[in-house]
Design a protein around this nucleic acid. Structure first.
Lengths: 220, 220
DNA sequence: TCATTCATTTACCATTTTGGTCAATAGTCT
DNA sequence: AGACTATTGACCAAAATGGTAAATGAATGA
């Protein structure tokens, strides 16, 4: 979804509209979101806003693509896919996710609202896009992993699953601890330490013993 | 939240109202749900429905308590808390959850809608109740666990966390596989086998070696 | 048969809110 | 001044909402 008129705007106004819309949709959901409030918070009249965006629906879908692009670009720009150690990559993912959450809190809030919206008007098209992402991006995350590090007596694919699920848990925990805090209030070192202690256990659990210290580099 | 008038009704009509309301709220969310549709699907007029339930809000909160009670009773009635083996208990939880999902699909759908509703009208009271449950019930789930089975060189609490997160993943996987299928279409044995292969890995990963066969009883 | 009481319906309401439009205005450049 | 664009805000038709209360129907009892 592209909005020509909005795209050719000075950055300031464009951002004002986008931010106002993100916030409104994030807090109220699609149906309850009011176009007049968006316009007001963007500092323009409703009439002008509808001059830039053809309809509420288009604006919403535009925001979805826009947010997704920013987040995904940021994500794939941050992650080092040369790292073949599954656990180190997981560690990266956990922290990148946390950082993204802090860098773009509105975007994440918007996404949560977008995903759980019931509105028939946008749900179908949202589902379509969602499927693509989960299909495309997710399994890319764990491609090219060095499987020789895993213990021999376990099913490696299933072990990977378990690690991914554990990663989800760790990331959620991080997210909860960080929620609402400012960047300065966070004790980053402590967070890293706690996080690493979990990965340490995962390593002991799923990797072969020996050759640990030198092979597995936990530095970022 | 109790609704006197509704409680003193013949079961048939009461159920009709409850089911109609559950479905409507589940599919549309609180705000979008229409009282007239609920009444119609329950086979009565709107006027009569408002004679039984004072307001839309009361009906919604009543359903929340009602659903929760049914599910929790069923859950705690099914689980064997004498089982001290963490992994066996997890296995129980996974399957009970799956069974509950099949027994009361409407209730789960309703809950999902209820939890993710944005409506200011009910959100506050919902949050209140939600906190109680997570605080009370959840940590009860993993009380009284035999910790001697865990490996000595790892932090047991963290290992428990990792197992719980893995359980979440396993349960979600089960849920997805079972979604939409009828009870007969499900290859239960295969599901159990797959599930157990994950728990097998978890056992190898987090428990001490030896004494496995006889100590860990995977029969239900 | 009539009256009373209950269950139920139906017509109605007051209000709110919505996304979207368009004629009028203000501002800017030549 | 005149031409052109950017911007406003009053206005709309329509829907749909939760809730009410008078009217109707059914059942009971004398």
């Amino acid at each position: 979804m592209t909005l020509e008129k909005l795209g050719n705007l000075d950055k300031e106004r464009k951002d004002a509209i986008i931010n106002a819309a993100l916030m409104e949709f994030a807090t109220k959901g699609y149906d309850e979101a009011s176009t007049i409030i968006i316009a007001k918070n963007a500092g323009i009249s409703k009439g002008l806003m509808f001059h830039y965006v053809n309809s509420k629906k288009d604006l919403f879908l535009y925001l979805y693509d826009y947010s997704l692009e920013i987040i995904l670009d940021d994500f794939w720009g941050s992650i080092n896919m040369n790292e073949k150690d599954m656990l180190v990559r997981c560690r990266q993912i956990a922290f990148i996710k946390m950082e993204l959450l802090h860098k773009h809190p509105q975007l994440f809030d918007f996404f949560q609202a977008a995903i759980y919206t019931d509105s028939q008007e946008v749900k179908i098209e949202l589902d379509k896009k969602g499927k693509d992402i989960r299909g495309n991006s997710f399994h890319k995350l764990f491609e090219n992993i060095d499987e020789t590090k895993f213990k021999d007596n376990i099913d490696i694919q299933k072990a990977k699953d378990l690690i991914i699920w554990s990663l989800n848990g760790i990331a959620d925990m991080l997210q909860q601890k960080v929620k609402g805090l400012t960047w300065e209030e966070i004790n980053y070192d402590q967070l890293i330490a706690e996080c690493d202690s979990y990965f340490e256990i995962l390593r002991k659990s799923y990797y072969k013993e020996g050759g640990i210290e030198n092979e597995c580099d936990f530095s970022k």
